[in-house]
Design a protein around this nucleic acid. Structure first.
Lengths: 201, 201
DNA sequence: GTCTATACTTGGATAGAC
DNA sequence: GTCTATCCAAGTATAGAC
């Protein structure tokens, strides 16, 4: 009874899985229709039939992953206090890494740099994250001396740029301590500055 | 009397110029041997004769630019006090943008993500900048309460990641206010925190 | 050192059979 | 919806004439 599902409509998910895995393990540069199809054991022409183009497939694979991550970020951070924030952010980031989401995201941003159409699509996908980061920063700074000093929008952009940049570097050398050491510093600073935010550490 | 120079050995510089300009204006993806040669009005085969491969040419073009920038960074920042730092960093960054150096750097990092050989070379080129940033951070934090809270090496990596990430975003949408707004915030914060560093603002 | 010509490879995409 | 076969474009790199 699973036959129709497993072999029929479900092929879209198999293609999405193969595309995501190919980008994660081999990079966008090697994520050609032929390579993705070989990794997923299906015919290359199916990609064009179901997704139109390789670019559209890669974006669809990212969207599926990003949608799940955004839901999780909102759920975890919506009621986080400033004191809880640093460890929660660390945990979310490690989940991104574990799921391969950060790798695929950085790969597609990098590839978007050399492909106008892809770059424009990636910029669109940056917006909701920019808004999330900005609203969090604004919420935490409200009522503190920093509220008038820090441009929340610029800071949000800086955080996302740092996220993508760190992923890019990690992808080049596989050094996992980069982010960890940074979160360590962040948590030490947070515990010292917590009084400023009216929260006991 | 300029004939031999202009048409002979100087061809290497013409090739380097064309490579740099092609990456700057069209991106790595379009910086093929054919395109670079067309932009510089010389024969495509010369690239392989003089530089061996397109990758080696692009790295050589970056190295020439990065060497000049590193010299300038060292010169300007070596004796900068904490209070002077933010405006000087802004100026240096704007020079990077103006010269096209930040664009070419971000492009090659992005491309390195999808090309093992190029990625390894880019990592090597990151090291001197990491050391410069780390030593500056260490110098400024020395004797302050932050010295024990902040991991200088991790912070240096974060700054470079942010630099590359911002360049990547800028290249996608051409929004020049991203960095400017961030420097504005940085200068406001610096003027408030200056007392901590024993310097009058 | 510089040119022309070309061998070779890879990849996007489609036509048409099943 | 899925397959085979194929077209076409773009790129790296080299051989060999000049």
């Amino acid at each position: 009874m699973l036959k129709a599902t497993a072999q029929g409509a479900d092929i879209r998910n198999r293609i999405l899985d193969a595309a995501f895995e190919t980008v994660r393990t081999e990079g966008v540069a090697r994520a050609s229709a032929r390579t993705i199809a070989r990794n997923g054991s299906f015919n290359q022409a199916l990609i064009f039939y179901h997704f139109g183009s390789v670019n559209d497939l890669l974006l669809a694979a990212l969207d599926r992953s990003a949608g799940a991550r955004m839901e999780r970020y909102r759920e975890v951070l919506s009621q986080a206090s400033p004191a809880e924030f640093a460890p929660l952010a660390r945990q979310l980031y490690l989940e991104d890494v574990e799921a391969g989401h950060s790798t695929v995201l950085a790969e597609l941003f990098a590839a978007g740099s050399g492909n106008r159409a892809l770059g424009a699509e990636m910029l669109k996908r940056l917006q909701p994250w920019l808004e999330l980061a900005e609203s969090l920063i604004r919420r935490f700074l409200a009522g503190t001396p920093f509220a008038t000093l820090v441009d929340a929008r610029a800071a949000a952009g800086a955080v996302l740029a740092m996220y993508v940049g760190i992923d890019l570097f990690n992808h080049l050398d596989g050094d996992r301590s980069r982010a960890t050491d940074l979160f360590d510093s962040g948590e030490r600073l947070a515990s010292v500055f917590a009084p400023l935010f009216g929260v006991k550490s």
